[in-house]
């Protein structure tokens, strides 16, 4: 098993500190989910991991070798970026065809047959200029390039943004098929957590420019609970744990608990329910907002 490791990564844009000391370890052969609120630095982190953007400080290595300007490492990765319909000179006039041709020229393991198949599946007109595509079509092209690159480590940034529900389902299915067949590593950032959560073997949650959580999704959810009941009893039952997003209705209180280990002996007078990844993330972020 290979490892893509980011060590003490810091990224500042001028005075703006986007990433503050990120340590991250991606094991190959897994599907990772990267979640975080808008502007938390997901795209920046992914760019730095693939050496597309320089970090202010810190180092990224793949199997111990620095990724920066390293032919051997770069050849193993594909970070299919969100296509921009505009450039600083106006509409992006590069044709889809040219985009795909460039991808074919650059990705070592490019699978043209697969690419053609996906183009048909997503119903893409290759003769169109990138700037003339809809948001969903732009997403489809990033997905096509990512999948057909057949890169060992494939990164998709917001691949389902703008896709309709049918195309999203198609995308999840494609990822699973491809993963089951090849065991490629996928890192997928998304805001539609609910749909994709069960796809992720591991989840990385970015918060405030730092990695708040990097853990097996099942293990993480196994130690997260939604606890509700009479307010004093809930407070008593959860006092030893990390509590997020308390809400009160009359004498009732509901909190989200993230314990260090799975808990089996909550006070029997409180209601204990599991939490979905989306709700856990929401609770963690709501806490942030309250403190701020």
């Amino acid at each position: 098993m290979s490892k893509l490791v980011g060590k003490s990564i810091v990224k500042n844009y001028g005075k703006d500190k986007v990433l503050k000391n990120i340590d991250i370890e991606i094991e190959t052969g897994k599907i990772y989910g990267l979640i975080g609120r808008n502007g938390v630095g997901k795209t920046t982190l992914l760019s730095i991991l693939t050496a597309q953007n320089p970090a202010t400080s810190g180092e990224v290595t793949l199997d111990g070798e620095p990724v920066w300007e390293n032919e051997k490492c770069l050849d193993r990765m594909c970070y299919s970026r969100e296509l921009s319909p505009v450039t600083i000179f106006g509409t992006n006039n590069i044709k889809v065809k040219e985009y795909l041709r460039t991808a074919k020229a650059f990705y070592k393991n490019w699978d043209q047959e697969y690419a053609e198949e996906l183009i048909k599946l997503f119903n893409i007109n290759k003769k169109k200029a990138v700037g003339k595509l809809s948001k969903g079509q732009l997403s489809a092209i990033t997905i096509i390039i990512a999948l057909a690159s057949k890169a060992e480590i494939t990164i998709l940034d917001e691949p389902v943004a703008g896709l309709d529900v049918v195309a999203r389902e198609q995308f999840y299915k494609l990822i699973i098929e491809e993963y089951a067949e090849t065991g490629r590593t996928f890192i997928i950032s998304t805001h539609i957590i609910e749909e994709a959560a069960s796809l992720f073997e591991k989840v990385i949650i970015l918060e405030d420019g730092q990695v708040a959580i990097e853990e097996n999704t099942e293990d993480l959810l196994a130690r997260a609970y939604r606890i509700s009941g009479q307010d004093t009893i809930v407070d008593e039952a959860t006092k030893d744990y990390k509590v997020f997003h308390p809400e009160v209705l009359g004498h009732n209180k509901v909190v989200t608990v993230l314990a260090d280990e799975p808990v089996s002996n909550f006070d029997c007078r409180v209601q204990v329910e599991p939490v979905s990844l989306q709700n856990l993330f929401f609770a963690m972020c709501s806490e942030e907002r309250k403190e701020a």
């Binding site: 999840y172 699973i176 993963y179 796809l199 073997e201």
Partner: peptide, 13 residues
Amino acid sequence: TELSKFYKINPAT
């Protein structure tokens, strides 16, 4: 694989 495709869940799960 069949299970994971049908339910859209990670094959490891």
